[in-house]
Write a protein that binds this DNA or RNA. Structure first.
Length: 670
RNA sequence: GCUGCCGUAGCUCAGUGGUAGAGCACUCCCUUGGUAAGGGAGAGGUCGUGAGUUCGAUCCUCACUGGCAGCACCA
């Protein structure tokens, strides 16, 4: 068919200008018509809002946007996806017989999952990278082909790519089966792709190797995943690698050791040994939370650590959660001679994995009236969960932890109000603790669950509605609904914070539960004189002290605000003549409620300043001969070279004010 | 739990088939110095645990255990 036979079409560019061309023209043609610079820079096109290859034939009138490296989001998407393919090509060329599966983009990069008998090791990464650079240099052109479905399946099965064949089978019938070529190598892919391997550039790096289950299901085969990062140019790549390096310095495990906050050891693996410095943070945070909860109408309780299995059977934990519980035989002989450790007819107890059943048992004591509701029952409850060993991570994921837990027993008509109140309380607490940004998710009914579909519909709807009321269900809040991720008794609102290297952690949560009140028979007397079921809102703001403090450490990189700092001030001498003066000052600071250390070591001031700076002490109070004579003190703040000299009383009062927790500071200013 | 890597002094890390080394920290001595490392000396480790190969294992093999990354699971 000659070009002349093609009808004319009108292409509208982003600036509103219209170009007339013949049907069958490509984005590349349009770019070339605009100018040679653009033709060279063009990576792909957006046709009526959909990303397409540069050589995608335009058949009808369309809105067209030419994508170049300047379009950051699109360019990075294209580059990363192409780099993933490039890696797959390199891997298949270097390790024949390796099957490819899927290779999507992720934040800052991409991965590709492979199937190969022999595992990849970190030694393979430089080899693969080198091959990738060669392929970039070869500048292989990209070619898109569309295959009939059955032929594609036969083809991929024929070459041993059974995962690709499976992917094709699962594609909706409306979808084209497109196969992309880079030279002789080809891969099933929806596209679009850059016009050639040369367009990818060399700003990429393979970062790590790991196992990953096919389709994310542990029942399936485990594949080998290779992760990489890719950027528009070397400068961006370098900036990214530096960013990661800096972030790793904030790791709470590293800082925890450096600042002597806590340690972990195998004899108690998954449980934290809090050192004095670390436990100071805990206590300050706990005291703060206790004041906030008191003010918000909560009542604190304490419930048993160990309860009989009968109780866990009734709550449902025995059936749905037992693999995560530490179960204890009721009777254990002292020695082997007296019988086996666990006898066949042993009766069982378990350490609590959650506080909820205990709270219901308190609720059930006595008769509750509708007038008593809502009852907000709080507990800093220490729970144990036997987590999969591979899941443990510093103090962020442990087997013994303390939640800032509470259960709100309320009537149906109080749910929305209580949930929105909770969201507001959580928001102010996060802000006090330095977090203006957090993500909110709604975790929907899981496979393993109690209760009727209607119950779940209602519970999910309530949480959805309450968040909508607070206006925090937008993209800027990372709002999404997660299928199948709720607890066995209730859907969850999840509140997530991000750690130093970008991993997100769930901290806060609120769950709307009708299952446990039913199973454990909680009732109140309504206005009508009949018994009714209360709804139970399980909720936590910090989540657990362990995880939250871990996040705080990373968030502040160990440089805590005064009220949380393990050591708030250190009095340091320049000459030993000032020792007595320094001791007096330390005493006064301590009397004023400040956590003040003293450093009288026979070292130069430079050395001491360096040490306390590295120890991240927010304030150094420096006493030399001059200060001792004048009754003054020189203050040097962490990371600030400029110093300030003032009287002792002024200094103590100033620091006392600075060290107030945020809620008390706010109360004082009113 | 799964895949891969790792486990040497309090910390950070070298190293070797013939029973170990650095820097920092620690102890002592000299130094009293005005804002990110003053000098010297000393002490400190059955090389994660157990078994195997070997004349001989911290090093090689296997198992166990813990750590790291990711997956799966989750606050």
């Amino acid at each position: 068919m000659s070009a002349a036979a093609q009808p004319e079409i009108r292409i509208t560019l982003p600036d509103g200008s219209v170009r007339t061309t013949t049907a069958g023209s490509t984005g590349a043609d349009i770019a070339a018509a605009i100018g040679p610079g653009l033709a060279k820079a063009a990576l792909a096109v957006e046709v009526d809002g959909r990303m397409r290859d540069l050589d995608w034939p335009l058949k009808d009138d369309a809105k067209l946007r030419i994508i170049t490296r300047k379009d950051e989001a699109e360019a990075l998407d294209l580059i990363r996806h192409d780099t993933a393919h490039l890696m797959a090509q390199a891997v298949q060329e270097l390790y024949p017989g390796t099957q490819v599966t899927i290779g999507p983009n992720i934040e800052d990069g991409f991965f590709y999952d492979f199937v190969r008998d022999e595992p990849f090791t970190s030694d393979d990464l430089p080899k693969i990278e080198a091959r990738m650079h060669e392929l970039v240099k070869a500048n292989l052109a990209t070619k898109r082909t569309v295959w009939p479905r059955e032929e594609a399946i036969r083809h991929f099965e024929g070459i041993g790519e059974k995962y690709k064949a499976e992917i094709i089978r699962d594609l909706p019938p409306s979808e084209d089966i497109s196969v992309y070529y880079h030279g002789n190598w080809h891969d099933l892919c929806r596209g679009p792709h850059l016009p050639s391997t040369g367009a990818i550039g060399n700003a990429f790096k393979l970062t790590k190797i790991s196992g990953a289950y096919w389709r994310g299901d542990a029942k399936n085969a485990q594949l080998q995943r290779i992760y990489g990062t890719a950027w528009r140019d070397e400068k961006e790549l370098k900036a990214y690698l530096t960013r990661i390096e800096e972030a790793e310095k904030r790791d709470h495990r590293k800082i925890g050791k450096e600042m002597d906050l806590f340690h972990l050891q195998s004899e108690a693996h998954g449980s934290v040994f809090w050192h004095p410095n670390g436990f100071v943070i805990w206590r300050a945070l706990e005291a703060y939370m206790r004041r906030r909860l008191d003010a918000a109408g909560y009542n604190e309780v304490k419930t048993p650590q160990v309860m009989d299995a009968r109780q866990w059977e009734q709550s449902g934990h025995w059936g749905k959660y037992r693999e995560n519980m530490f179960v204890i035989p009721d009777e254990i002989p002292n020695t082997e001679d007296e019988g086996p450790l666990v006898s066949n007819d042993a009766s069982w107890m378990a350490l609590k994995p959650m506080n909820c059943p205990g709270h219901i048992l308190i609720f059930r004591q006595g008769i509750k009236s509708y007038r008593d509701l809502p009852i907000r029952m709080a507990e800093f409850g220490c729970c144990h969960r036997n987590e999969p060993h591979g899941a443990l991570h510093g103090i962020m994921r442990v087997r013994q932890f303390t939640q800032d837990d509470a259960h709100i027993f309320c009537r149906e008509d109080q749910i929305i109000d209580e949930v929105t109140k909770f969201c507001d309380l959580l928001d102010t607490i996060y802000k006090d603790l330095g977090f203006d940004k957090y993500a909110i998710k709604l975790a929907l009914r899981p496979e393993k669950r109690f209760g009727t579909e209607e119950m779940w519909d209602q519970a999910e709807g309530e949480l959805r509605e309450a968040v909508a009321k607070t206006g925090r269900n937008g993209a800027e809040w990372g709002w999404e609904e997660l299928k199948g991720e709720g607890a066995f008794y209730a859907p969850k609102l999840e509140f997530h914070l991000t750690d130093a290297i970008g991993r997100t952690w769930q901290v806060g949560t609120i769950q709307s539960d009708r299952v446990l009140p039913e199973r454990l028979d909680a009732t109140y007397v309504g206005e009508d004189g009949n018994r009714h079921r209360p709804v139970m809102l399980h909720r936590a703001i910090l989540g657990t002290y362990e995880r939250f403090i871990g996040i705080l450490i990373e968030h502040y990189a160990g440089k805590f605000p005064m009220w949380l700092a393990p050591v708030q001030a250190v009095v340091t001498t320049i000459v030993s003549d000032a020792d007595d003066y320094a001791k007096t000052l330390q005493g006064k600071l301590r009397s004023a409620g400040l956590r003040a250390d003293i450093d009288l070591r026979n070292e130069k001031i430079n050395y001491k300043v360096r040490e306390h700076s590295l120890a991240k002490v927010p304030v150094m109070l420096i006493a030399g001969r001059r200060e001792a004579e004048e009754g003054r003190i020189t203050i040097r703040r962490l990371g600030v070279e400029k110093q300030e000299t003032m009287t002792l009383d002024d200094a103590i009062e100033m620091l006392r004010q600075e060290a107030l927790p945020p809620d008390l500071k706010a109360a004082q200013s009113h």
